[in-house]
Nucleic acid binder design. Structure first.
Lengths: 129, 129
DNA sequence: GTTCGTGGTCACTTGTGGTTACCCAGAAAC
DNA sequence: GTTTCTGGGTAACCACAAGTGACCACGAAC
């Protein structure tokens, strides 16, 4: 994480920003968080929809990550006090910003899929000799 | 992870690509991997350099992630059979591609730092009443 | 009064990130 | 010639995080 030199900010600010940036980065750079961001996308989604769409995520991990994302202001959580309860999630502006970079990662994956597959095969092949 | 519809590929191909994409995504979407990619950057770095530059990473995690990245063809590992040993790491084309998106994430972090900090404060403040 | 449906929590088990200690092989110090 | 230092890897171990499953609240439907 390289902190850019901004005119007019102190070193203290930069240091704080750097450590905070590291923290945010650690929070956000995990597969569930990114997958959730990507799955919500432009829409407003309910808890169970997300749970069904994100293959392999557990009930608990979903809740946990949604909370974390909400805390970081990446998504908005709306509770409708009905019975049964209904909770909606949608991305904030910051969330959409992050989503753009996640899209980039998805594109990257598509682009280098073949390369990666080859590379893995080569790596996993036992060396003969 | 949305698989784009490509002309001329079968469904089987698409399915394989999708599951592979998920796997790659899981591998790569972790803080150490991304931090390593970002830290290597354009240069050729030695093991210990990386260990020193990536704050908080342990010996083992570095080795483990470097291996994983090598396996996925994101970086190249060059061993010089000297004593003491010397091992160089540098990004491949695919690695540089991923790095571009990681750069995007870093920019995003910088941009929304303030927003995130506010949001956290609000979230962590106990509700009075 | 039993069952179902939704979002969440809690207790428990399993897996994996992280720490530590040790290994290798030779060069240089002594 | 014995010791020490070196840089990178690895196996054993531990702690905590992820994953699993039960249970809860609440009312409507049956």
């Amino acid at each position: 994480m390289v902190t850019k030199q901004l005119n007019g900010s102190d070193d203290a600010d930069l240091l704080r920003a750097d450590s905070l940036a590291r923290e945010i980065f650690s929070d956000v750079a995990n597969k569930w968080a990114l997958l959730i961001i990507e799955t919500i996308g432009d829409r407003t989604r309910r808890f169970t929809e997300l749970r069904d769409d994100i293959e392999g995520i557990s009930h608990k991990m979903l809740t946990q990550n949604l909370r974390m994302l909400e805390r970081n202001g990446l998504l908005e959580r709306t509770v409708h006090p009905t019975v049964p309860p209904r909770v909606d999630y949608s991305l904030t502006e910051a969330g959409h910003g992050l989503r753009a970079t996640v899209d980039g990662m998805c594109d990257w994956t598509q682009r280098f899929l073949g390369h990666i597959e080859d590379s893995r095969r080569r790596f996993d092949t036992p060396v003969n000799g």
